[in-house]
């Protein structure tokens, strides 16, 4: 049996009394690529942000690689792992944002080295080869001294992926990584992600790219209105959707 990387159950989240997530289950095994699809406002980004505690859940529990990240006690209070443990668990997850969120005052290499050196306290000579290797893998070796503002959106997003990988995470989370890009630039980012998947990185990807979800993911979660409408393999979701809501959504997307 493969290792369970993410095991989440009954995740609930409210914003201003409004249910954004009403009891979501997520299971991700090692090497899985889980695509979360669904219309805007379905809660898919919120779900992703709950998995790494950028948002705190209002209910349910989450285990990361078997370690309890958050749980609910008998009287329904949400309890997160102690501060240090919680931070350590967060550190196992790399995050790629829709808006890249690179540090604009640092060069590409500076962005990659920042956290390994100052958070993990790795010596520079130890992390440098890995960082250079990562830049080569995303095809940006020649840009290591450039500032983010000198790069295209697609290049920035690839740097952001490399930056997250430089922390050597066990799981990579992508929050609509191509939604802020011009259509002709999405390909290069998806290509990088596809390569990552081929190297068996465990990935959770919130996306509007149906082709990517169909071809790269091995699990698909379709969400609408804060609920999981349907979950399954890409074939099940894209070729034989069972629910009317899924069929309608896919008809509009394809």
């Amino acid at each position: 049996m493969k290792k369970k990387m993410i095991n989440a159950h009954g995740i609930r989240k409210q914003f201003h009394g409004q249910n954004v997530l009403s009891g979501i289950d997520v299971e991700v095994e090692q090497g899985d690529v889980l695509a979360i699809i669904g219309p805007s406002g379905s809660g898919k980004s919120t779900l992703l942000r709950c998995l790494n505690r950028l948002e705190e859940v209002d209910g349910g529990w989450i285990q990361i690689e078997g370690d309890m990240f958050v749980q609910e006690n008998d009287i329904g209070e949400v309890i997160y792992a102690p501060k240090e443990k919680s931070k350590e668990i967060q550190g196992r997850m790399g995050m790629v944002f829709q808006q890249f969120n690179l540090f604009p005052h640092m060069t590409v290499m500076g962005n990659l080295l920042e956290a390994p050196i100052h958070v993990k306290k790795q010596p520079k000579e130890e992390i440098l080869p890995l960082a250079e290797d990562l830049l080569a893998r995303v095809g940006l070796s020649d840009k290591k001294d450039a500032y983010p503002s000198q790069l295209s959106g697609g290049q920035q997003q690839r740097v952001a992926i490399a930056r997250a990988l430089a922390m050597q995470p066990d799981i990579m989370l992508f929050d609509e990584p191509t939604s802020a890009l011009d259509p002709e630039l999405t390909g290069e980012v998806l290509h990088t992600m596809r390569e990552l998947a081929e190297e068996h990185m465990t990935m959770v990807v919130v996306t509007h790219e149906m082709n990517f979800a169909r071809e790269v993911a091995n699990k698909v979660l379709f969400m609408a209105d804060g609920n999981v409408v349907e979950a399954g393999t890409p074939e099940e979701i894209f070729d034989h959707p069972q629910r009317q809501r899924t069929q309608d959504f896919l008809r509009n997307m394809l």
Partner: peptide
């Protein structure tokens, strides 16, 4: 706030 979130996810 994206800068704070990026920093947080890098463990800073």
């Amino acid at each position: 706030k994206g800068q704070y979130e990026a920093a947080k996810m890098l463990g800073m």
